[in-house]
Amino acid sequence: MGCSEWCKQEFKPCNFGFGKHLRPELTVTSQWPSLPPVIYLAWRWFAFAYHLAWLIVTVAAATIYTAGRATWFAYLTNWTYFLLTVDVLIEALASLVWYFRARNPNVDVVPETTTWYMKLSWFMYSITTTVVVLVGLTYWYDNHHCLCFFLAAGADDFYIDVQTHGITLVYVVLNLALTGVPVRIYHLIYPFAFAVLYTVFTVIYYYAGGVSKNGKRYVYKGVLDWADPNTSLTWISILAFVGIPVIHVLLVYGLHLVRVTIHNKCFGDDCMADNKVRQAEMTTLSDENTKSYCIA
Rank of each mutant, 00 (worst) to 15 (best):
S4T: 11
E10G: 00
F11Y: 13
C14G: 05
N15M: 04
K20I: 03
K20W: 08
E25L: 14
Q31K: 11
P33L: 09
L41I: 06
R44N: 10
R44S: 07
F46M: 11
F48P: 05
A49Y: 06
A53C: 11
T58W: 03
A60N: 10
T63S: 12
G68S: 05
A70H: 13
L76S: 04
N78P: 03
T80Y: 02
T85E: 02
V86L: 14
V88S: 00
A94V: 04
A94C: 07
N104L: 08
N106Q: 11
V109N: 12
V110Q: 10
T113D: 14
T113G: 13
T115P: 02
W116R: 09
W116L: 10
L120I: 08
W122D: 07
F123W: 14
I127E: 00
T128E: 08
T130M: 02
V131C: 06
V133N: 00
F150P: 02
D161T: 10
V162N: 02
H165E: 08
T179K: 03
V183M: 09
I185P: 02
H187F: 03
I189A: 08
F194N: 01
A195K: 03
T199M: 09
I204F: 11
Y205N: 02
Y207S: 06
Y207N: 08
G209P: 01
S212E: 06
K213D: 07
N214V: 07
N214G: 14
Y220F: 13
K221C: 06
A227P: 02
D228L: 04
L239A: 14
G243M: 08
G254A: 08
G254D: 08
H256D: 15
R259D: 05
C266W: 12
D269E: 15
A273F: 02
A273T: 10
V277C: 05
R278A: 15
E288F: 06
